[in-house]
């Protein structure tokens, strides 16, 4: 097992290198650079920027250097000093902007993922075992409605309901009185009171798909001979379904962790904008619009790394769940 993990970690290195290169290429792809948009912004405000100062800024940011030098400067800063570069737009080091946002994003996504599983797995099992029953149809119907409602409408609706009927303060992460306060139980509680809306919104939109996945996986497994064997042993229907087919039907589920994480992170962008949450999505959007290349690059890179880590986690979990993989 240790060797397996070490091997997987080793394989990650070339992948990481490739991904960092692609991230850098992507942020370089749009025509122009941050200075172009800066110059046009200054021109819009009526002032002119002379040639000399543009050149000076270009040299300062290293924008006149060839691609590979820029890439090396960027990646070596990240790897050796943890320096993700300078955000032109915010006038701050990228790393200072990054971690807060990433932390909140991971928190919301992680909680959503857990909520999704808590809803989807039991319903999926129920639907598979009682296929074509009234309950199956009802859950499927509700699931598809959840899938069909755009997340921002759901977010707006939930905000409206909880504000008008329950008088809750919604939007953002904290009520005003806790905004700058130190961490305490009360503040944590306040955080949870704000957090449930985005978590629920994100979860509901992804649950239906996973219910279908679980239902299909399990329905395939239920007809397998080993289920009959377990039944012939005299196990109760609940025990045998949980112990045998569900266990095996979970495998494809676990292997989706890798891509569910990044999908969630980019998926919550609209919700985050609607709810005014300080998450990664809105920041990335703005960075891309203003061609704030180091900030955008850092986000893209970190999301790629998260995908890789997700893949690693799912592979390790798979190996734990399924001895056939472990012994290969």
């Amino acid at each position: 097992m240790g060797i397996y993990i070490a091997k997987r970690l080793l394989y990650m290195i070339p992948t990481l290198f490739g991904m960092s290169l692609i991230s850098f290429v992507i942020i370089q792809l749009p025509p122009g650079d941050f200075l172009t948009s800066l110059v046009s912004a200054i021109a819009d405000s009526g002032q002119g920027l002379d040639r000399a100062s543009i050149d000076r800024l270009t040299a300062l940011y290293g924008l006149d250097q060839p691609f590979y030098v820029q890439y090396w400067n960027w990646i070596s800063g990240i790897v050796f000093r943890g320096d993700f570069g300078w955000s032109f737009d915010w006038g701050q080091p990228v790393s200072r902007l990054l971690w807060d946002r990433m932390g909140i994003t991971l928190l919301v996504s992680g909680l959503s993922l857990i909520l999704i599983w808590l809803i989807a797995i039991p319903i999926g099992i129920y639907s598979a075992v009682r296929r074509y029953s009234a309950g199956d149809y009802i859950f499927t119907f509700i699931g598809f409605i959840g899938l069909a409602i755009p997340t921002f409408i759901l977010a707006l609706g939930l905000m409206y309901v909880s504000f008008t009927y329950f008088g809750l303060n919604v939007g953002g992460l904290f009520s005003p009185e806790y905004e700058g306060a130190r961490w305490s139980i009360a503040k944590f509680w306040d955080l949870l009171a704000h957090l449930w809306i985005p978590v629920v919104v994100v979860a509901i939109s992804s649950t239906a798909a996973l219910i279908r996945v679980m239902r299909a996986n399990l329905a395939d497994e239920l007809g397998k001979p080993y289920v009959t064997t377990a039944r012939a042993k005299g196990l109760s229907e609940f025990t045998l379904i949980m112990r045998y087919p569900v266990r095996i039907a979970l495998n494809p589920f676990v292997s989706t962790i890798g891509w569910v994480l990044p999908a969630l992170i980019s998926g919550v962008t609209i919700t985050a904008i609607v709810l005014n949450l300080p998450m990664a999505g809105p920041l990335l959007l703005r960075a891309l619009v203003s061609q704030d290349m180091y900030l955008a690059g850092a986000f893209i890179l970190i999301m790629s790394v998260l995908t890789l880590i997700g893949m690693l986690i799912s592979d390790i979990l798979l190996a734990l769940l399924d001895p056939r993989i472990r012994y290969q």
Partner: peptide, 9 residues
């Protein structure tokens, strides 16, 4: 092969 669970000892 298929009558025994592959993921249990």
């Amino acid at each position: 092969m298929s009558s025994l669970s592959p993921v249990h000892t």
